[in-house]
Simulated assay, not measured.
Amino acid sequence: MTQTLEPTSQPIGISEAGAARAHAVISSSGKENAGVRLFIKSGGCSGYQYGMAIDDRELEGDTILMDRGVKLIVDRMSLPLVQGAEIDYVESMMGGGFTVNNPNATSGCGCGSSFRTDGSAAQDGEGAAGCGSH
């Protein structure tokens, strides 16, 4: 069973810049009713890695919510690790990209793709990869 939340009880959100970029990417994806799926996997130099995808599937146990007109999808296992996080889109001299501002991350790597939470370790591959290999 998927869980759809009202805006007042949202576990994650998306910034104005993130929403603008997400709308552009979703509309060019050709996937009807798609949203941004945020997920966590073990790996990276800090223990966990963020993953994002444009997804039109709603899987068993997903939490689905709307923020700034963007459908956000998080699976049951990833949700506790991203509770309170905000997806953002940042432009820099090296180009632009989505980033996750996660209040649960107690440390992260220099490239911002992986993180560690206080008191929880990745299930496998922790610390096995360097920043350059995400």
Results as ranks from 00 to 15, higher is better:
residue 2 T to L: 12
residue 2 T to M: 13
residue 3 Q to L: 14
residue 4 T to S: 14
residue 4 T to V: 13
residue 5 L to V: 15
residue 6 E to R: 09
residue 8 T to F: 00
residue 10 Q to K: 03
residue 11 P to W: 02
residue 11 P to Y: 00
residue 12 I to S: 04
residue 13 G to M: 02
residue 14 I to P: 04
residue 14 I to E: 06
residue 15 S to Q: 11
residue 16 E to W: 02
residue 16 E to R: 06
residue 17 A to H: 12
residue 17 A to Y: 07
residue 18 G to N: 10
residue 20 A to E: 15
residue 21 R to L: 11
residue 21 R to K: 15
residue 21 R to N: 13
residue 24 A to C: 02
residue 25 V to I: 15
residue 25 V to A: 08
residue 26 I to S: 01
residue 27 S to E: 15
residue 27 S to F: 12
residue 29 S to C: 11
residue 31 K to I: 01
residue 33 N to H: 14
residue 34 A to F: 02
residue 36 V to Y: 02
residue 37 R to S: 11
residue 37 R to L: 13
residue 37 R to D: 03
residue 38 L to C: 14
residue 39 F to D: 00
residue 39 F to W: 14
residue 40 I to M: 10
residue 43 G to R: 03
residue 44 G to V: 03
residue 44 G to M: 04
residue 46 S to P: 02
residue 46 S to C: 13
residue 48 Y to L: 06
residue 48 Y to W: 08
residue 49 Q to F: 01
residue 50 Y to A: 09
residue 50 Y to C: 08
residue 50 Y to M: 10
residue 51 G to N: 12
residue 52 M to Y: 10
residue 55 D to V: 01
residue 55 D to T: 03
residue 56 D to L: 00
residue 57 R to I: 00
residue 58 E to S: 08
residue 58 E to I: 09
residue 59 L to D: 15
residue 60 E to Q: 08
residue 60 E to L: 04
residue 61 G to R: 08
residue 61 G to V: 06
residue 68 R to I: 07
residue 69 G to M: 04
residue 69 G to R: 07
residue 70 V to R: 00
residue 70 V to L: 05
residue 70 V to S: 03
residue 70 V to E: 09
residue 71 K to H: 02
residue 71 K to V: 03
residue 72 L to P: 09
residue 73 I to A: 05
residue 77 M to T: 05
residue 78 S to F: 06
residue 78 S to C: 07
residue 80 P to D: 12
residue 81 L to P: 02
residue 81 L to I: 09
residue 82 V to H: 07
residue 83 Q to Y: 01
residue 83 Q to W: 03
residue 84 G to I: 12
residue 85 A to V: 12
residue 87 I to R: 14
residue 88 D to V: 14
residue 89 Y to C: 12
residue 89 Y to P: 11
residue 91 E to Q: 14
residue 91 E to Y: 15
residue 92 S to Q: 11
residue 93 M to V: 11
residue 93 M to Q: 14
residue 94 M to C: 05
residue 96 G to D: 07
residue 97 G to K: 11
residue 97 G to V: 06
residue 98 F to Y: 15
residue 98 F to E: 01
residue 99 T to D: 00
residue 99 T to K: 15
residue 100 V to N: 03
residue 100 V to A: 05
residue 100 V to I: 15
residue 103 P to F: 04
residue 104 N to G: 06
residue 104 N to C: 09
residue 104 N to P: 06
residue 106 T to S: 10
residue 107 S to N: 10
residue 107 S to T: 10
residue 109 C to K: 05
residue 109 C to P: 11
residue 109 C to V: 04
residue 109 C to I: 02
residue 113 S to P: 00
residue 113 S to R: 11
residue 116 R to W: 02
residue 117 T to A: 05
residue 118 D to E: 11
residue 119 G to R: 05
residue 119 G to M: 04
residue 120 S to M: 05
residue 120 S to Q: 08
residue 121 A to W: 04
residue 121 A to I: 07
residue 122 A to V: 07
residue 123 Q to D: 14
residue 124 D to Y: 13
residue 124 D to I: 07
residue 126 E to F: 07
residue 129 A to P: 00
residue 130 G to C: 06
residue 130 G to L: 04
residue 130 G to K: 00
residue 131 C to A: 13
residue 131 C to D: 15
residue 133 S to C: 05
residue 133 S to K: 00
